[in-house]
Design a protein around this nucleic acid. Sequence first.
DNA 1: TTCAGAAAATGACATACATCATCTTTTAGG
DNA 2: CCTAAAAGATGATGTATGTCATTTTCTGAA
Lengths: 234, 234
Amino acid sequence: MKFTNPDCLNCSSRAHSLLSCCRASELAHLSETKSCFTYKKGQLIFHEGGKPSGLYCINTGKIKIAKLGSDGKEQIVRLAKPGDLIGYRALMADTNYSASAVALEDAVICFIPRSQFLELISQNVEFAGGLMKLISNALGEAEERMVQMAYKPVRERLAEALLLLQKTYQEREEGDKFTISISREDLASIVGTAKETTIRLLSEFKDEGLITAKGSSITILDHERLYKISHMYD
Amino acid sequence: MKFTNPDCLNCSSRAHSLLSCCRASELAHLSETKSCFTYKKGQLIFHEGGKPSGLYCINTGKIKIAKLGSDGKEQIVRLAKPGDLIGYRALMADTNYSASAVALEDAVICFIPRSQFLELISQNVEFAGGLMKLISNALGEAEERMVQMAYKPVRERLAEALLLLQKTYQEREEGDKFTISISREDLASIVGTAKETTIRLLSEFKDEGLITAKGSSITILDHERLYKISHMYD
DNA sequence: TTCAGAAAATGACATACATCATCTTTTAGG
DNA sequence: CCTAAAAGATGATGTATGTCATTTTCTGAA
């Protein structure tokens, strides 16, 4: 659903965004050429296999980037939050999307047309460099997770997933505790395991006093011990 | 061991390299500033955790890029061949190496100092763009393998690994058959499984007439059926 | 508040894969 | 050509995790 274009200059999430390196004139031009949409929880933003026509910049809401495994199971490859760009990999590689993007909660997302994106790259060296850094870091993280999938037991990967959620989505103001609302199914898709296994291990974590859960809300009580579990054999 | 600098202009592997988009003057300058070394089979080129000081361009030989898993097991995250660049991720991300590079056979590799690399990026738009494309593709492949690690059985991943080796290392002139010399241990590190499991499944493949093996040489006989196995449940 | 459908929780069971141990073959150096 | 060490092969066994089935709890719309 079309949304009144927010002004990039005054965007609350600009501070944590790559777009923060743009000049005021560039931002003004962006504000004009982009279009902004609202998405309901669960709604598709772009689809694996689809052709990219531009870049997305998240204004509000949590997003998952996920691939479909051969047997129909889903693997979440990346999480995104306000200020993050999504869809840049396919644009840069000049290929179709290799993953889908879905809103984990109601979201507002700006769409920047391909031409505008390419213009930005060619005219703003900082932006281009920042983008390179972004992709390079993503590659490093993907390779790291690849190793973990190969050799880490599910229990450790689940602990890691919970910490990843906290790292990604905890607001600066919040204190020690962290609560997130995420379905066991999505959590399993981050870990790369079956939903039932995730549920069982979460129950263990509850018994051990590491987390509490009511409904689909999970609260991390003991960050430190979770960290130890996730690095058990290091 | 230091090696007489080969001339980039006449480099036999330049055709398949990103450096092919460089101008003659740039290549001449490269030839001067780079230094070239020989590596013995098994020798380390750069080390996970180490600080990158430049870019490596493979002249001859096969290279593995591998990470150490928490329990000491190795995961090969990428393979490289003559013409390929390695070590660019750490340079671009401005972090330490997140993986090690090791020669799978005797190799000759040129070293391009960081400053020269950065100069090339800033002065040659094509090179910079090609590099972006390179990283973006690597990211796509890494995420794809992450999903496969999560949900594909080892048998299918092994079939895929054999095809990856063929795709990466088969010379254009060779015909249908393809033979490669690789230890069962390295093969297991690509698949992300135990050496014994790899050996057992290779025996199955032999019984089924998909491959033959003598010593550490593996010959792919039936590319097509291997492909089917690797896509069993698609 | 109530009720239906979705999500979470738990149990029973099957199995792919890791691990450890042993034996055989290949490889490389003298 | 021989021999020791490395790599490959194979068997026995345990276990983590997937799958299917059932019950319980949560959630949101009427």
